[in-house]
Write a protein that binds this DNA or RNA. Structure first.
Lengths: 344, 344
DNA sequence: CTGTTAGCGCTTTCAA
DNA sequence: TTGAAAGCGCTAACAG
């Protein structure tokens, strides 16, 4: 009705030209104001007018158009196997804590048997960086030319030139072996991850080496399972007789999730923990405190892993900090009630 | 060295013009081949040549440029409070199961006290759809004009015209109340979520109503806490004496995570479960089977929630199916050892 | 302080 | 069956 007002509202999505027209300025000015770069470049009055128009029309910058010209996506991919795993979920939460509204986390799950996504796939998402928590990708020949920073999580080895955040697993592993040795255990089942990863090799080797050092005639019985509670449970149900025949008095697992399965299997078989068999693991997820019985576990601070990795990737993206940095997080044993004296 | 070959490899990121030059075709042809639209439009020989060049140069379509012209982002946001919560993590995993390589999941955590992100913020990420698992956003006035499909998770109420997936909480809640009534409980503490959400109101109301119906002189003691194990634990530690004075013989929590805290607090206070106090909750996360003691819980299939929501949003995005659909998932009580006869 | 303009890399008519 | 060309909406020089 009023002649001074634009009558027809823009049909589709509101764009910069709509705002420009509404405010009576050029789109360059709109861009400046919309991006908070108006300070000292646009008069306060004009800026206010533009802001009012933006609010009135509900204008939101088209991110694709912006990315096309800036080359930045404000997006980082987290590549991991299973977000339902509490350790991964905690890592993601840590990443999210660090990312503000300015950086988005995209979940690139390496689900099923498609195998992990390769660099090409990830970069087809349009990301400014990548957080890798699976094995193998580091060997992707395209990694060097990824064109964006890559931070490797929970792996101490690999090509130099990549930043990484990992745990000093040796501390906790040694403490765990001393703890079990002190309780008189001599034959221990080590339930490893089926998936070969250097972090799992580390956990096993460091524990095994220290255990052999502390215990005379130590014996390690090896087993592997997927990192899945039910799979681990089924394996234990099958293998328990054999393990007991070999004299095992304790089971150590590579991850908490596997330990949950072990506890479930032992409960189902009416095996007392730690009376008949002690159980311990690596991860110390929050719920380890309330399992039946509460789980002795080497604490690997996942949330911090995520936070540190996010910090590294953001620094490389925004302040183009040099890659190749390593952040090493300490670990420590948390003793709870799932471990006790070896039965005689 | 060979005259027939392009010598200087493209400097920056490989783009369509590089491939076109390498293959001796136009960029239009490259686009066709790269998008699998070559069938019947490009000769087999040319297509093969282009594909070879794409592989040789490692060409990946620039997603921002593509989005700019197609208007599609191949990205969906999941808005939730805390990815570290096993229920949310399972939901995300379900979503990921459905999304192929063609659709990416972005995690828009409503962390901290910034409050949940609003529609404008989400759409500034560039998404084709949105999965909402928090309260409040449905009341965002901009929701109608979001410009992309929105699916509401785990809420039965709200504006029509939005698709939603939620649980028929009544079934499980009623079973739980019957279960407790049958065990002779009369005074029950209901530990609700601090965060007001219709799904939590539902859980409480349905349980309470059924319990009052089954139990003569039933009494419900109300409490609230954040959905955080340690917060719940602290609350229980403080409130336990008062609750016992009031004659409570059971604690029901709105979520498993709170129940973990309850179990931890009771274990710390040397209160026998279920001997002195029974505990039950809603969610039935996988680890509920291995808590101390294993937790009686109403199963809310989170993974399926995610799967169904993903299906709905994809249908609306790709086949522009009509919004306003509702998928209702059944629930059922899973009885474990944390509930037993009320002490006398 | 504000506007004009040249692309960013790609998809998609439309002609040839 | 292929190519030329017109934008998609925006940012960033540059000019005024």
């Amino acid at each position: 009705m009023d002649v001074g007002e634009r009558m027809s509202p823009p049909k589709g999505r509101v764009k910069a030209t709509d705002v420009a027209e509404h405010a009576g300025v050029s789109i360059a000015t709109v861009s400046l104001v919309a991006n908070g770069k108006a300070e000292g470049r646009v008069s306060a009055a004009t800026a206010a007018r533009v802001r009012a128009s933006i609010a009135a029309l509900g204008y939101v910058v088209n991110p694709a158009a912006r990315s096309l010209v800036t080359g930045r996506h404000h997006r980082v991919a987290l590549v991991a196997h299973d977000i339902a795993n509490p350790f991964i979920a905690a890592t993601a939460a840590g990443v999210g804590e660090v990312f503000g509204k300015d950086m988005q986390l995209i979940l690139a799950a390496a689900t099923g048997e498609d195998g992990p996504p390769d660099i090409a796939t990830i970069s087809s998402f349009g990301v400014d960086g990548m957080l890798v928590n699976i094995a193998g990708i580091q060997d992707d020949p395209q990694l060097g030319e990824a064109g964006f920073p890559v931070v490797v999580l929970d792996e101490s080895q690999g090509p130099p030139g990549l930043s990484r955040v990992y745990f000093d697993v040796g501390i906790g592993a040694t403490q765990l072996s001393e703890h079990l040795a002190g309780l008189g255990h001599r034959v221990v089942v080590y339930l490893d991850s089926e998936r070969v990863r250097e972090t799992f090799d580390d956990r096993r080797e460091r524990f095994t080496a220290a255990f052999r050092q502390h215990v005379h005639r130590a014996k390690i019985v090896s087993a592997r399972s997927r990192i899945d509670m039910h799979v681990a449970q089924a394996l234990v149900a099958r293998s328990l007789p054999s393990w007991r025949r070999q004299g095992a008095t304790a089971i150590v697992t590579a991850t908490d999730v596997q330990a949950y399965g072990v506890l479930a299997a032992l409960a189902a078989a009416d095996v007392e923990v730690p009376g008949a068999l002690s159980v311990a693991s690596f991860d110390n997820n929050p719920i380890a405190a309330v399992t039946h019985p509460p789980l002795t576990s080497v604490d690997l601070p996942a949330r911090e892993l995520g936070r540190e990795a996010a910090l590294l990737v953001v620094d490389q993206i925004e302040k183009d900090a040099r890659p190749g940095r390593s952040v090493i997080l300490p670990t420590s044993l948390v003793v709870r009630r799932s471990t006790g004296p070896a039965p005689t």
